[in-house]
Design a protein around this nucleic acid. Structure first.
Lengths: 202, 202
DNA sequence: TATGGTATGTACTGTACAGTACAGTATTAA
DNA sequence: TTAATACTGTACTGTACAGTACATACCATA
């Protein structure tokens, strides 16, 4: 291994081990010593690679946002019928956003966003916002084709995702339920699509 | 002041001062000494009245849930038409749940619910759940009267609130926007009511 | 005005933690 | 083999904090 690849690997190892800890326990409940113990090696690494606990935390959140929310930017629905498109994007969105690790990341970002406001923005733009924009673009196109009544497409998109997400996400965040199955998610989406299509029919 | 009223007043004073601090900064970022400094008096009070920092925290969250979410259990919509009822309950719900202090409380509860699972339950049952149940009961009654198509009323209720709430609440939680005006809220509700009524028309 | 519960101030204990220092060891590249 | 770079282990500093102890001051009530 080259000398640069060596340090890159170490950096990665820290990033991954610390990500698991932060996502599981939260920022304040994880000490730098605990991270060192998990990843092995020495405390000095963390400070040479990330400067501070805060620097490490920010790097991790950025990394996890990309990693966890990336599937949201790969949905291609342009050529589908409204029902198919809403079903497809809805299922993908929900199964990403309700995944236990995403919920834990969201909880973490929400907790720390008053202290580190950039993180909230980062999460929002890497995840929800891309989905909203994508669906809004699709809806706008369908409106132009006369397949849906005309209305603010961005708002319609947020209504659709809200209808899907809000209740289940809230219950997961408040720890009043356990994670959901794919079948349950699919049923949620079916019902919401039904209401949305009727609500926005031409 | 009687001797018991004296201590009750002290207890109240602690509760209020500490509530503001916890809601503003979060559980870990507020030291017991900081609370004492805010409320005046001595540290011993806190430990005689609440036993521990954790005990104080739980008392505060319970108190704030009642205080902030109480308006949700006072909506009376039984005799209104669907459009009026949805508008009324929607506006009330949103103006409570999107209020800055409610958002801060929700953030706090979400942050700490892995550590104190009862708090999540408490919040959920004092707030969202009563609204869901209330609207579900109304919808069920309207379905029986043939004014709405028949469908799972609880699910329909959560869809309605989700449509209203999800996007705006998320943006507040992630600190990517500033609080909303009553007019903005009213407009959100109008649009959601429109979609909901079409979606659940007989 | 004497008494008992209540409040205050201050000082203390033990612990946990972020961040630093540094001497020594491993690994790579010439 | 040598020099440069990166990694390790351990020990340390300073600080912040939860919780305790206690002596003193307050105040309602009888």
């Amino acid at each position: 291994m080259s000398v640069t690849a060596r340090s890159a690997a170490k950096r990665e190892a820290i990033l991954h081990a610390a990500a698991d800890l932060f996502i599981e326990k939260g920022y304040d409940k994880v000490s730098v010593d605990a991270i060192v113990q998990e990843v092995g090696g020495s405390k000095a690494n963390i400070y040479t690679y990330f400067g501070s606990k805060e620097g490490l935390f920010k790097a991790i959140v950025a990394h996890c946002c990309e990693e966890l929310l990336e599937p949201l930017s790969r949905a291609d629905i342009a050529d589908l019928s409204p029902r198919e498109a809403l079903n497809a994007i809805g299922c993908r969105f929900l199964s990403v956003v309700l995944a236990p690790r995403t919920i834990a990341l969201y909880r973490l970002v929400v907790s720390e966003s008053p202290q580190f406001p950039k993180l909230g923005q980062l999460f929002y733009e890497a995840g929800p916002e891309v989905s909203f924009q994508r669906l809004a673009a699709y809806l706008s196109q369908q409106q132009a084709m006369g397949r849906l009544r005309s209305a603010d497409p961005k708002q319609a998109a947020t209504q659709f995702f809200g209808m899907l997400l809000c209740y289940s996400q809230m219950r997961l965040l408040l720890a009043v339920t356990s994670p959901f199955s794919e079948e349950y998610i699919a049923a949620l989406v079916e019902d919401a699509v039904e209401v949305f299509l009727k609500g926005y029919a031409q």
